[in-house]
């Protein structure tokens, strides 16, 4: 039994060690690390930060970045009431139809709609941004290693280019972007927006809040997942003990 456990442990550690580094090497600078409320076995999303982050997204990021996988109705998860959700949705216009005459028409958004993209397609997005494509942000937190820290680091990582680097026109220097040259100009400035809850809107605060919001946007079911995980693993621990006792009992006439 002991040998078995040791073997399993060794196998697990060895296999995990082998798996982790399936990522790129390169001159990646170590990301800033924030103690997020949503990390860890029992972490939950900071609702206040997420609501502020939504405001940052809508007032700053949505000019160029879509969020097309997120339905307005899911904002209820963040503590918005049904009326607040409908109001947010109604601020956007969607093309619908055809009507009975065969024409398309515009209508205000409903809770069942998803956040739109500011551009009709990728080509229009690139044309409007010097060839660079502002990615949809619905999954950005999961599509980068250590996504929440990456978003926060990137948004607070704009610095002047060092003396030995000449930036091509239209590029900006960022410590945390791969290759350090990013087409997106620094999107955040102190007091750029006025938070609904009165929190001072520093770059640091906005970067933090939008990172929380985007983490939720990428993984809205995280809290249910962790909650179920706790119940399942506790149940399995009890099951393991009971099954082990039964195994010992059945095998006792042989030992």
């Amino acid at each position: 039994m002991r040998k078995f456990l040791i073997s399993v442990g060794v196998a697990a550690i060895v296999s995990l060690a082998a798996l982790g580094p399936a990522k790129a090497a390169g001159d990646a600078v170590e990301l800033k690390s924030v103690a997020w409320e949503h990390e860890g076995l029992f972490g939950t999303y900071d609702r206040a930060a997420a609501q502020r982050g939504l405001q940052v997204y809508r007032e700053v990021c949505a000019a160029c970045h879509g969020l097309t996988l997120v339905s307005f109705r899911t904002l209820a998860d963040l503590g918005f009431s049904e009326d607040e959700v409908k109001a947010i949705a109604a601020e956007y216009e969607f093309t619908d139809g055809p009507d009975d005459f065969g024409d398309m028409f515009d209508r205000p958004g409903k809770a069942s709609d998803k956040f739109p993209s500011p551009f009709p397609n990728e080509q229009a997005a690139r044309a409007g941004n010097g060839g660079a494509f502002p990615v949809d942000l619905s999954l950005v937190s999961k599509s980068r290693p250590n996504g929440d820290n990456y978003i926060y680091s990137l948004l607070t990582g704009y610095v002047d280019a060092p003396a030995d680097v000449t930036l091509p026109a239209g590029m900006n220097y960022n410590l945390y972007f791969a290759g350090h040259q990013i087409a997106m100009p620094p999107p955040l400035m102190d007091d750029q927006i006025e938070y609904a809850d009165g929190t001072p809107a520093t770059v640091d605060q906005m970067a933090h809040d939008v990172a929380v919001f985007l983490s939720w946007a990428a993984e809205p079911k995280m809290e249910q997942r962790k909650e179920m995980g706790l119940k399942v693993i506790l149940f399995l621990l009890i099951l393991t003990v009971v099954f082990y006792a039964a195994k010992r009992k059945i095998w006792s006439d042989l030992h």
Binding site: L239, Y244, A246, K247, W251
Partner: peptide, 9 residues
């Protein structure tokens, strides 16, 4: 029973 125990782990 041994396999069931292994399964639980």
């Amino acid at each position: 029973v041994k396999d069931l125990f292994g399964l639980a782990v």
